[in-house]
Nucleic acid binder design. Structure first.
Length: 579
DNA sequence: GCCGTTTTCGGCCCGACTGTTTTCAGTCG
């Protein structure tokens, strides 16, 4: 975890404990300070090393909190937090992770029933003790029990690949409702973040009640969490789907607002204020003639709100694609007319990383080739695993078997419906060496090299060594991360990207939803260094070709244009690139 | 506890929703 996040977590825990003890106001300050530190580009450990005054540069951090931050950086905790923990020894993060349970509830249940952790909470609910606590009832007790179960199994965020299909099913459902006007996904799902907190759907309608009513009857809704006049939430396939219904006139502003990110919207709001405009979920308002722009949500002359395009237009900005709204300079780029023309779904013409039954795939070379044609690809690269570090259970092919496979591909070539490059996915050992003989590598059309084991610590030198190998064309899943399972090796992306640019080696965006490796911010650095990206699926079966869209949108999160991506070229263009 | 002034103390984002407490507190986004 980034040191900023660790410090922010401590301050938030302290804020929760203060609030649980009924302390007013102070906890809000700690929470604001925690957010500022979490979002600050400054390294909090470096600031702390300079002393409390340096830490106070950060918004909402004053004399008192800055001292606690310095102490926390040096010792891992601060005194007042330890005292608060001693006074109320509860597992705050775990308990507040349960839906509907906040700091006050934790405090109440600790005092009344000595609830300290999730097990205590579950027991108290099962024994029917919670309903007897003042302010609680049977309904709350039941909700807590259900919340515990969900918190335990889901650990928070869902994979993009799991959330997207549910979100799209919800979208299809709303589009078929006569009372529903425009429907869009919003939030991190619309920005295609690798993990999603909950699924946000926005609908514009003049008959909001009809849309809400239809939603709570949605056949894919397993449970209705809440339902009011403007919004509702259900659980579908274990995921929370949040619906918000707005009048058609405010659809564009609501869509802009609920798409986020929060940081993008904050920057956009300030950009508006500088121009005597006010932007919020209800529209863009000209407040140049208004004495107090903060006197209400809809004060001033409304100049936009019906469409999202119009929102940006009112600020004299071109439309900014949702994937770019992460406060990584997109508003400045838009103002300067420097927005990239992002790569689009459908521009990827082939897949350069996939597996067949020769290694751990389930289908033959012919079957994968035929499925590729059906999918719309012009070419594929058969890149079965080579034996070597990380390939257990005899999955990988040795050099002799790879020679056999190469011969078979050459043999089949003329009968196959697409261009098939003969390749391999070789392993990059801890010292950066490649697990396949150099002469064989030189004979293959396309060499993908990937890390599969020893995925700890800094991997920069290891990956750079592989990039510099004369036969390596693509670095597959460069970090080796698996989302929710392991972080992968640490990489200095700038160093890796510069080496890749110098050696004409492509860096992969592995489109598998469990990987998405590289990811948006890394892709942006790679593109800025002038290196080439390859968007591959690592498919082990035909349906996995579909993953490519997750790769394309990840590339868009990294501001990549079609020219930056190797496999937007035709087969001959790819062949020219390969070593 | 921090901020921003009204410059040394008053105010702190807010609207929607739920469940329970008949008038509101806690949670969430």
């Amino acid at each position: 975890m980034r040191p900023n996040a660790e410090i922010a977590d401590l301050l938030e825990e302290y804020a929760d404990l203060l609030e649980a003890q009924g302390v007013e106001y102070k906890h809000r300050t700690y929470r604001r300070a925690a957010e500022s530190i979490r979002d600050s580009p400054e390294d909090i450990a470096a600031l702390a090393a300079e002393g409390p005054e340096a830490v106070q540069q950060i918004q909402d951090v004053g004399e008192s909190i800055s001292k606690k931050v310095v102490e926390a950086v040096e010792t891992g905790v601060f005194e007042q937090l330890e005292e608060a923990r001693a006074e109320m020894p509860v597992e705050m993060a775990a308990l507040t992770g349960v839906e509907g349970v906040g700091p006050k509830t934790v405090g109440d249940l600790y005092h009344a029933l000595d609830v300290r952790d999730l097990d205590d909470l579950e027991n108290a609910a099962r024994e029917g003790e919670i309903r007897d606590v003042s302010g609680f009832g049977e309904k709350t007790e039941r909700n807590i029990l259900e919340g515990i179960e969900f918190a335990r199994q889901s650990q928070g965020r869902e994979l993009l690949g799991d959330a997207r299909p549910v979100g799209e099913a919800a979208l299809d459902f709303f589009e078929a409702i006569p009372e529903a006007g425009r429907c869009e996904l919003a939030g991190s799902l619309r920005r295609w973040k690798p993990t999603i907190g909950d699924i946000d759907v926005l609908v514009g309608s003049d008959d909001r009640q009809a849309v809400i009513d239809a939603f709570t009857d949605w056949e894919q809704a397993d449970e209705v969490i809440e339902a009011g006049t403007d919004k509702a939430a259900v659980r579908s396939e274990g995921q929370r789907v949040d619906l918000r219904v707005v009048v058609p006139d405010e659809f564009g502003s609501a869509l802009q607002y609920f798409t986020g990110s929060k940081q993008h919207n904050i920057r956009l709001r300030n950009y508006a204020i500088e121009r005597d405009l006010k932007i919020n979920e209800y529209g863009v308002f000209d407040v140049s003639q208004v004495e107090d722009p903060n006197s209400g949500q809809r004060v001033g002359q409304r100049v936009a709100g019906r469409t999202e395009d119009g929102m940006y237009d009112a600020l004299e900005l071109p439309f900014i694609e949702p994937e770019m709204r992460e406060d990584r300079g997109e508003i400045d780029a838009a103002a300067d007319g420097d927005l990239p023309d992002l790569i689009a779904e459908g521009e990827v013409r082939g897949d350069l990383h996939l597996h067949t039954e020769w290694s751990d795939g389930e289908y033959t070379i012919e079957q994968m080739a035929e499925a590729a044609v059906e999918f719309g690809h012009d070419y594929i690269c058969v890149s079965d695993h080579a034996t070597g570090p990380g390939m257990v259970g005899g999955v990988g092919l040795d050099d002799e078997e790879l020679r056999e496979q190469l011969a078979e591909i050459r043999d089949l070539e003329s009968d196959l419906p697409v261009t098939v490059f003969a390749g391999v996915e070789a392993n990059i050992a801890k010292d950066g060496s490649i697990s396949v003989g150099d002469d064989l590598l030189a004979d293959l059309d396309c060499v993908v090299a990937s890390p599969h084991s020893g995925l700890e610590g800094d991997g920069t030198d290891r990956i750079v060594a592989a990039i510099e190998h004369p036969s390596v064309d693509i670095i597959g899943h460069p970090s080796g991360r698996m989302i929710h399972r392991r972080p992968g090796v640490e990489l200095d992306i700038d160093v890796v990207a510069r080496a890749a640019a110098e050696n004409d080696t492509a860096l992969e965006i592995n489109s598998n939803p469990h990987r998405l490796d590289l990811w948006g911010s890394a892709v942006k650095q790679v593109v800025e260094c002038g290196a080439t990206i390859a968007i591959d699926t690592d498919a082990h079966s035909p349906p996995e070709y579909e993953y490519v869209r997750y790769g394309v949108h990840t590339a868009r999160r990294g501001w990549a244009q079609a020219d930056d991506v190797l496999n937007t070229r035709d087969a001959e263009g790819v062949r020219d690139f390969l070593h």
